[in-house]
Write a protein that binds this DNA or RNA. Structure first.
Length: 316
DNA sequence: CATCGATGTTGAG
DNA sequence: TCAACCTCGATGG
């Protein structure tokens, strides 16, 4: 479920509360026992996200790679409060960050719980420590005062540095790690080479990292581009603007924890958008509804097993 | 309480 | 192209 922005926020959470600490690693579910044994008792030394992949480094240059897939989640609990907010300066240049709700761990009480998946939710405070694993916990990472439980991942494996490099090497550029001109050029060259529809290219993690079904639909709408256009037929300037818009939206997503894809001129607009969290997009999940711009009914196609939404009038 | 569907990826056929 | 993975909130009876 989570698109790139959530994974970067999870990586931050580990950087804040686990890096530098000795970690007791286990697999309460029993499906990752040997991997957990390799890591048990080591100190976490780094936390990075590339696209939708989370990489946690431990002593002896061992890495844990986790991909949440469509319904994986991390549950953090314990002393996860922090003086340093997950969000720092606001991308949009106003004081959007002032409206951060209680979903963030800022000022959360000791022994609170925080679930991080495509959404972030605070759960009731704990009364026992460490908490009993609930349900199918693939991996538990436990420090003196924090715990992270992983459930439902599509990938969870221990890797050597060269294996990490191999995984990262197959991924397209991630604007959060690399918003350089080279990254934009690489994305642009790849897209302009391919006959594949742009709607599929944006979802291809070897072309560009971190985009999922929501950002795909919204980026194409914002570019007023027909998702079926072959990559090689998209004007180069449009390809470049797609990249730059992804840089922009990803930064907003990482700062706010929300997939904000519309413009919010005033703070009130922004608050309303958060309140109507299930109807805050241009086209995503709006099949049959009138386009917010032109009133034409939004269409939906199945493309490579995923629902693709677009406005046939605005996007040509 | 049963069923459905989801912001993903892999691998079988 | 499609099922499997294996979780959980939303939906309907």
């Amino acid at each position: 479920m989570p698109e790139g922005h959530s994974v970067h926020r999870i990586a931050r959470q580990f950087a804040l509360h686990f890096v530098g600490k000795r970690v007791e690693t286990s697999s309460p579910q029993g499906r990752f026992v040997s991997g957990a044994q390799q890591l048990d008792g080591l100190t976490m030394t780094d936390s990075r996200a590339v696209g939708k992949n989370l990489f946690l480094e431990f002593d002896h240059r061992l890495w844990l790679r986790v991909h949440l897939g469509i319904y994986g989640a991390w549950d953090f609990a314990g002393d996860i409060s922090t003086d340093a907010p997950l969000a720092s300066a606001d991308e949009r240049g106003n004081d959007l960050a002032n409206f951060e709700d209680s979903l963030h761990s800022i000022g959360a009480p000791r022994r609170s719980r925080l679930r991080m998946s495509e959404k972030e939710t605070v759960q009731p405070e704990l009364d026992t420590w460490p908490p009993e694993p609930v349900g199918q916990v693939r991996v538990r990472l436990l420090t003196e005062d924090t715990v992270a439980d992983l459930r439902g991942p599509t990938a969870c494996e221990v890797l050597l540095p060269e294996q990490v490099d191999a995984v990262v090497g197959k991924l397209g550029p991630d604007p959060m790690g690399d918003d350089s001109q080279e990254a934009e050029d690489r994305f642009t060259a790849t897209v302009l080479k391919k006959p594949t529809p742009i709607g599929l290219l944006l979802m291809d993690q070897s072309v560009v990292s971190g985009i999922g079904n929501v950002y795909r639909a919204e980026l194409l709408y914002r570019a007023r581009l027909d998702p079926h256009t072959p990559g090689k037929r998209v004007p180069e300037e449009t390809v470049r603007s797609l990249w730059r818009d992804w840089v922009h939206l990803l930064h907003i997503g990482v700062e706010t924890g929300h997939m904000l894809t519309m413009d919010y001129p005033t703070d009130e607009d922004y608050r309303n958008a958060l309140a109507n969290s299930d109807d805050r997009h241009w086209v995503y999940q709006r099949a049959g509804l009138p386009c917010r711009t032109c009133g034409t009914h939004i269409l939906m196609d199945m493309a490579a097993g995923r629902k693709l939404y677009w406005c046939p009038n605005c996007q040509r």
